[in-house]
Write a protein that binds this DNA or RNA. Structure first.
Length: 166
DNA sequence: ATGCGAAGATGGA
DNA sequence: TCCATCTTCGCAT
């Protein structure tokens, strides 16, 4: 059973889902609340709305989007992830606010120097964008690389953190 | 400077 | 089993 909350931010309506163990998924901003709901129903069958229990994360998310250096210390429910994914996400968590690293850097951190593409794959499967700063991982030589939720969102997040000049 | 091929992990068809 | 996915590096052109 999962609890969820849909909240309004300056960039649109976001969603947060949590189990008893912790945060399970974050839905990046969408135009309408219904779109968030629809996406949630696509992944979960048992959902209960719980604005009260999740208003903490909602509030911190709003502060983050306002450009504050928010520290997300939420508990995370990473059930279902493979060893490799856990290592990738852990290394990504270590990238400081406002800075970026390359996929190769992440691969090196976890001792998988040749698994750069696998790193990209694992980040793409990340259910907790922003909390796990997958947007801080970019391609080498200034290229941004990709982003499953849309490259525009990656650009937006990096601009918010001031990691992108323009 | 640009194009091509190959290498890793994982999930879906 | 094959294909696509948030990449990078070496080699040839």
């Amino acid at each position: 059973m999962y609890k969820y909350s849909i909240f309004e931010t300056k960039y649109g309506n976001m969603g947060a889902v949590a189990s008893e163990k912790g945060l399970h998924m974050i839905i990046l901003p969408k135009k309408k609340p219904e779109e968030v709901k629809k996406e949630l129903e696509q992944y979960y069958t048992e959902l209960i709305r719980d604005e009260e229990g999740l208003k903490g994360i909602g509030g911190r998310m709003r502060e983050y989007l306002d450009g504050k250096k928010v520290k997300f210390r939420e508990k995370m429910d990473l059930a279902g992830a493979t060893d490799f994914e856990l290592k990738v996400w852990d290394a990504t968590l270590g990238i400081p606010y406002g800075e970026t690293r390359s996929y190769a850097w992440v691969a090196k951190q976890i001792g998988e120097g040749k698994g750069v593409r696998a790193v990209g794959g694992a980040l793409g499967r990340n259910r907790l964008p922003i909390i796990i700063p997958c947007h801080r991982v970019v391609s080498k030589e200034g290229d941004l690389g990709g982003f499953s939720a849309g490259i525009e969102m990656k650009v937006l997040l990096l601009k918010i953190e001031g990691a992108l000049l323009c």
